[in-house]
Nucleic acid binder design. Structure first.
Lengths: 251, 251
DNA sequence: TTTTATTTGTCCGTATGTATC
DNA sequence: GGATACATACGGACAAATAAA
């Protein structure tokens, strides 16, 4: 049956038959609109039926398009509430020179950090092994909350040898940068030796500090930084809010 | 006050005062037992009160130890049921030579794969850009379910240029390996150019295919593989079951 | 289907040693 | 020294989920 406007109920138009699936065209259109700033971060997209009439397609087509964008993390649909534009993830390159402040800074954001705990303790077997010190020897543990533009990005637990870096906690409190702490103890440069990434769900404490809903996914990153002779300096276990970062490895 | 057994309510013993927290000693003990195979993968640990009497400590101390192991992913506690030993994550190195079958094989597992969908379609803008072809030009899309020891590890969507690799789907169905498909078209070798990892929650379809509970975290990996001259060959979007892999980057 | 026992999760409390200000 | 906060350790009680009878 032909409708008054000349269209029939069957397959769609969307301008011309380009050979590209309609829902893809809708998804691309929405993506461009988001990229162009028509819909800002955190704002609500128009309702599905509004988008449908905007593009002249069926609501199911819009749903398929939104599902695509949702899977790619661009938007998040909340039942009964609407579909919202997600914040863009911070691109976090993993390479020999991996410094939180530098990475956040080059992404055009302001890096921040807060020391939420510090301790001097005997090294547990696994930490000691990765730090290349004897099990039970004294290490300094720093618990940091790191932020980009005041938004918490990760909670990181860092261990250093207390013999090589005595008072590291106090120095960090003053300098507010791991790199500065190492420099203070005469380490001019260092590099990332290994990085291990696993995905899991946030613990209650981390979720709270990262301002995440319970059950939110996190990226748990275990890393070892070494000096230029290959001697381990730092062992870190960081919990990143998964929705706020993307790790990038270039070969 | 001193109890009949000579202990008082205050600080602990656990053999001797080693200076290491009791709960840590319990955690280490359990970890060693798991590593030694006393408790195999998937089996249930003794109940908390049993472990407590085994180590001669309070149940709360055991709970603190189990929380540590749980946070590290070694065990998973299920209320009303017990605490179970988790399967070790497959170490998945990300480097220039990144081949699924090779990685699974060297981990001592048997790699498997199943083609769950194939299509020939015009390239979407983003895919085209990464594949260095014109938007709208024809590409082959392969949807693969990849397994290690019959356990699903990831669902991967791979795009190839249809001009360069015509009939890629049919060839894959016969060879059952991406590397073989490329070899069939004269590509002797290729390497991983870039890898992007984000963490999110599984979509319903992926969760089902990966045999994951709804709401399980996944690692979404976007990658580009290029030939030795740097020409893009494959663009892949893979969804890994987060609980089954750990990505490793060595510098 | 209902009941019962088991097991983990979450509170309450008490007490002690240590680090910090 | 004193005051305070915190981590550790223990004891008990009950809730909630699960599994078996």
């Amino acid at each position: 049956m032909i409708f008054p406007n000349g269209r029939h109920a069957g397959p769609p138009r969307a301008g011309e038959p380009t050979g590209i699936a309609l829902w893809r065209q809708v998804a691309d259109g929405l993506e461009r609109a988001i990229a162009a700033g028509t819909y800002g971060v955190g704002t609500k997209l128009p309702g599905e039926k509004d988008i449908a009439s905007l593009f002249g397609v069926n609501r199911h087509t819009v749903r398929r398009a939104l599902a695509e964008l949702s899977e790619r993390g661009l938007v998040r649909a909340m039942r009964g509430s609407g579909t919202f534009v997600e914040a863009q993830r911070i691109a976090y390159p993993i390479r020999p020179r991996t410094r939180f402040s530098e990475i956040i800074g080059t992404s055009g954001r302001e890096a921040g950090g807060r020391l939420i705990a510090k301790a001097t303790e005997p090294a547990q077997a696994e930490i000691a092994h990765r730090l290349a010190v004897r099990t039970g020897s004294t290490v300094v543990r720093l618990e940091l909350l790191r932020q980009a533009d005041r938004v918490p990005v990760c909670v990181a637990t860092t261990w250093l040898s207390a013999a090589r870096f005595p008072d590291a906690a106090r120095v960090y409190a003053a300098k507010r940068s791991i790199t500065s702490v190492l420099a203070h103890f005469g380490v001019a440069d260092y590099r990332r030796a290994s990085t291990r990434v696993i995905g899991t769900l946030a613990e209650a404490g981390d979720a709270m500090r990262l301002a995440l809903a319970p059950g939110s996914p996190i990226l748990l990153v275990d890393s070892v930084d070494v000096d230029l002779r290959g001697q381990p300096l730092l062992v870190t276990r960081a919990r990143f809010a998964a929705e706020r970062v993307e790790f990038v490895v270039e070969s």
